[in-house]
Nucleic acid binder design. Structure first.
Length: 480
RNA sequence: CGGGAUGUAGCCUAGUGGCUAAGGCGCCUGCUUUGGGAGCAGGAGAUCGGAGGUUCGAAUCCUCUCAUCCCGACCA
């Protein structure tokens, strides 16, 4: 079924597509730009959802569900918002066989429908803060799509909060950014940079957009999550006011924040290799695969022993026993490696003679013999090590591919030409959108984030491109 | 949306105007096997991406169209 994956060195994008299709994470659907998430891909998303959902609840948020269809006029209420999203809207013009009086847009995001409701629900300071999240699908008509990374329809989570004060809303924005960072690093084993987006990269309708940015193995950056401080923009557009303790009317302060099934793509590109998918243990739907190895003359010894061990391990781990007799052990090794299961346990006659099993790590391929009665403890330790190692490996990779060019020539060389090194470039910027655009035109690299505290670091320096006084230390990269 | 490439069975590929579209992998049946993608035998599976045209005859030539991949402009 799944034999050959294009090596990363041959074609990184072919490699990526091969993994998605051959590990059966997703498949193309009949509609351009959209995809079917298959059970193995969806299981990854479910584990991400469950971890994130717990973190959202722990920070006081509640889930709700708002409808898919939004009156077109709602989008127009916030000028920046409609300008940003108009090109990618899917619009429903007919329903029940009749032309609709007002077209309905399929949500590209839910700020407008949610704030139209918040207007009804918020009257008093006692109604605040309002902390709501929803898990939903959204549609954005994309010109160029890629499995998981950019599809016309995708699944995501969008938090929408309303606050009495600017400080509180800003705090919330950063709190959720921190939740995303923690999730990326601790669960996905993927180090991320955090910071604020430049004006040209921010969300349509936001005052500030913050993001987590990760570096993929092809040295391109991927925006893996965003958190927006929306100021009073949507409150004013939808006339959402509350009475404060002094009985005065004030507009509400807002945030929104989201991560999507793009994270599945990020996970693949951050860790996987030419043998297939690699999934960090905390997110792996299956942590252990047990492969019994037997012949017809010893199958009665091996299989029961394997079942016994599996029953034991099942109490603590998500484990699958592959005792299918129609595939050879070698085939199974390759197959389960491609599926990304973090730890394989082999149990054959030679192991049983020695009262042991053989454990093989997916991240390094290292094999070791483990005494049967120590299997659970050793598996736990190895899974922890794998989780750590994946993070360390990605962190070292990012370190090795983060550059601090001293001159414009040095910086340009990072991105120009076939064999350009790519990666992150940290460099002083004058804060001018025109300079940013010029850099993008010349190198294809964009400002990914302006890290926290970057202004102080920029003091006294001059812009890498314009030579004018620098206002920011910006992180540049070619991005997905 | 512009430029390039590709499209033949579930997957990979051969066939470049002429007989019933060929092979490998996978799949099904049976036997035999099982420590890095096993072997033998038999079998099922294709309106050659779709539509239209040229021709006595089209997978093959022409036009249009759709999809995927790559490169650009726009974006989680």
């Amino acid at each position: 079924m799944a034999e050959h994956i294009t090596p990363r060195s041959t074609s990184y994008s072919d490699w990526y597509v091969d993994i998605v299709l051959k590990a059966q994470l997703a498949d193309y659907s009949p509609v351009k730009g959209s995809m079917v998430i298959r059970p193995r891909g969806y299981a990854l998303w479910e584990r991400m959802q469950s971890a994130l959902d717990g973190m959202f609840k722990a920070t006081g948020h509640q889930n709700a569900y708002f409808p898919l269809l939004i009156p077109e006029s709602f989008l127009h209420k916030e000028a920046q918002h409609v300008e940003g999203f108009a090109p990618e809207l899917a619009v429903v013009t007919h329903g029940g066989g009749e032309k609709l009086e007002e077209p309905l847009v399929i949500r590209p995001t839910s700020e407008t429908i949610i704030w139209s409701m918040y207007r009804k629900w918020i009257q008093s300071w006692r109604d605040l803060p309002l902390l709501i999240n929803q898990w939903a699908n959204v549609v954005r008509w994309e010109k160029r799509t890629r499995l998981f990374l950019r599809t016309t329809e995708f699944l995501w989570q969008e938090g929408h909060t309303a606050h009495a004060t600017e400080d509180e809303a800003r705090e919330e924005t950063l709190r959720m950014l921190e939740v995303y960072r923690t999730f990326a690093e601790e669960y996905m084993a993927m180090p991320v940079l955090t910071g604020v987006k430049s004006e040209s990269e921010k969300f349509a309708g936001a005052v500030n957009t913050y993001a987590i940015e990760a570096l993929m193995q092809d040295r391109r950056a991927l925006q893996a999550g965003t958190s927006h401080f929306l100021g009073q923009n949507f409150a004013k557009a939808f006339d959402v006011q509350f009475q404060n303790r002094e009985s005065a009317l004030e507009y509400v302060w807002a945030t929104s924040w989201g991560v999507s099934t793009r994270l599945v793509g990020a996970l693949i590109m951050a860790h996987s290799d030419d043998n297939g998918l690699i999934v960090p243990p905390k997110l792996a739907p299956t942590e252990l695969v047990l492969i019994p190895i037997f012949r017809s003359n010893n199958r009665e010894q091996v299989l029961p022993a394997a079942e016994k061990l599996a029953d034991e391990l099942r109490k603590e781990f998500r484990i699958v026993v592959d005792d299918d007799e129609s595939n050879s052990p070698g085939w199974k090794f390759a197959e389960w490696e491609m599926r990304g299961v973090p730890l394989r346990i082999e149990m054959g006659p030679r192991d049983l003679e020695n009262g042991q099993v053989t454990m093989v790590r997916r991240d390094t391929g290292e094999k070791e013999a483990v005494a049967l009665d120590a299997a659970g403890a050793r598996a736990r330790a190895l899974l922890d090590e794998i989780q750590q190692n994946l993070y360390q490996r990605a962190l070292e990779f990012r370190g090795a591919n983060t550059h601090y060019p001293a001159t414009w020539d040095e910086m340009a060389a990072l991105y120009q030409g076939e064999d350009a090194p790519g990666g992150f470039a940290v460099a002083p910027w004058d804060g001018d959108a025109a300079t940013e655009a010029l850099i993008k035109e010349e190198t294809k690299a964009t400002i990914r984030v302006l890290p926290f505290g970057n202004e102080e670091e920029a003091r006294g320096k001059t812009c890498i491109r314009s030579g004018k006084p620098a206002r920011h230390m910006a992180v540049f990269a070619k991005a997905y």
